[in-house]
Amino acid sequence: MKKPQLAIALAFGAVTATAAAGDVEDQIRFRQSAYSFLGWNTAKIKAQASDHPDTFNKDEVIAAANAIAGVANAGVFEKLYGPGTDKGTGWKPSRLKPEFFEKQDEAKEINATFIKEANELQKVAAGGDPAAIKAQFGKLAAACKSCHDLIRIRQ
C-alpha cells in the first residue's frame, strides 16, 4: 500500500471503527461523508481523463486515485451499513434500499470488485497514461454503478 493510500485508509479506518460502535445516524453521516469524498475525487479524474483531457494533470489524478483507493480499503462497507441505516437521516435522508439487508452476498461481491478496481486505478494512475487511466476509470465507474443499481434509491 502506498503512503498516501495508507494514511487515508488509517484515517477512514479510525473513523469507521468509531462509527461502527456509533448509532445509526453516525453510521449514515460517516458513510455519506465517505461517499461524498469519493464522488469529489472521481469527478476530478473524470474531468481530466474523459471530459477535458486537455486539462490532464498527472499529479492531481494520482492524488485522486490514491484517495479513492484509501477509502475503498478503509472498511466503509463492513462498518457503516448497520441495521436501520436504511431509515435514518445522517446529513440527509439515507438512500439505502431496505432490500440491501437481503442482498448481502451480492453487495459484498460488488464491494470486492470496487476495491479491486480502485486499487488497479491507483496503479494505473501512477503510470500517468491518460488512455489507460480513462479505461481503468471506466471499470471503477461500472463497479460504482452496479452498487448504486442494487442498493441505492434513485432520486
Rank of each mutant, 00 (worst) to 15 (best):
residue 16 T to I: 05
residue 16 T to G: 01
residue 17 A to K: 01
residue 19 A to D: 03
residue 20 A to I: 00
residue 21 A to K: 00
residue 24 V to Y: 00
residue 24 V to E: 02
residue 25 E to T: 02
residue 26 D to G: 00
residue 28 I to L: 00
residue 29 R to L: 02
residue 29 R to T: 11
residue 30 F to M: 10
residue 32 Q to W: 02
residue 34 A to I: 05
residue 35 Y to H: 12
residue 35 Y to S: 03
residue 36 S to Y: 12
residue 38 L to R: 05
residue 39 G to E: 08
residue 40 W to E: 09
residue 41 N to S: 09
residue 42 T to F: 03
residue 42 T to C: 01
residue 46 K to G: 05
residue 47 A to T: 10
residue 48 Q to W: 07
residue 48 Q to E: 13
residue 52 H to T: 13
residue 53 P to L: 05
residue 54 D to C: 01
residue 55 T to R: 10
residue 55 T to F: 09
residue 56 F to W: 15
residue 56 F to Y: 15
residue 57 N to E: 15
residue 59 D to C: 04
residue 60 E to Q: 15
residue 60 E to H: 14
residue 60 E to N: 15
residue 63 A to Y: 06
residue 65 A to S: 12
residue 67 A to T: 15
residue 67 A to H: 13
residue 68 I to L: 15
residue 69 A to T: 05
residue 71 V to T: 08
residue 71 V to I: 15
residue 73 N to H: 08
residue 73 N to M: 09
residue 73 N to A: 11
residue 74 A to Q: 07
residue 75 G to L: 04
residue 75 G to S: 06
residue 78 E to W: 05
residue 79 K to G: 05
residue 81 Y to N: 10
residue 81 Y to H: 11
residue 82 G to W: 04
residue 83 P to Y: 00
residue 84 G to V: 08
residue 84 G to I: 03
residue 85 T to K: 00
residue 85 T to M: 01
residue 86 D to W: 01
residue 86 D to T: 01
residue 86 D to Y: 01
residue 86 D to N: 08
residue 87 K to L: 06
residue 88 G to I: 08
residue 89 T to A: 13
residue 90 G to I: 11
residue 91 W to K: 11
residue 91 W to F: 15
residue 91 W to S: 14
residue 92 K to C: 12
residue 92 K to E: 15
residue 93 P to L: 05
residue 94 S to K: 04
residue 94 S to T: 14
residue 94 S to R: 04
residue 98 P to W: 09
residue 98 P to A: 07
residue 99 E to K: 14
residue 101 F to D: 06
residue 101 F to A: 02
residue 102 E to N: 13
residue 104 Q to S: 08
residue 105 D to V: 12
residue 108 K to V: 07
residue 109 E to D: 14
residue 109 E to W: 01
residue 109 E to I: 02
residue 111 N to K: 09
residue 112 A to R: 15
residue 114 F to E: 07
residue 115 I to K: 14
residue 116 K to Y: 06
residue 118 A to D: 07
residue 120 E to G: 03
residue 120 E to N: 12
residue 121 L to D: 13
residue 123 K to R: 13
residue 124 V to E: 04
residue 125 A to E: 11
residue 129 D to G: 02
residue 129 D to L: 00
residue 131 A to M: 01
residue 134 K to Q: 06
residue 134 K to G: 05
residue 137 F to A: 08
residue 138 G to L: 02
residue 139 K to C: 01
residue 140 L to E: 04
residue 140 L to F: 08
residue 143 A to Y: 04
residue 144 C to I: 03
residue 145 K to G: 10
residue 145 K to L: 09
residue 145 K to E: 14
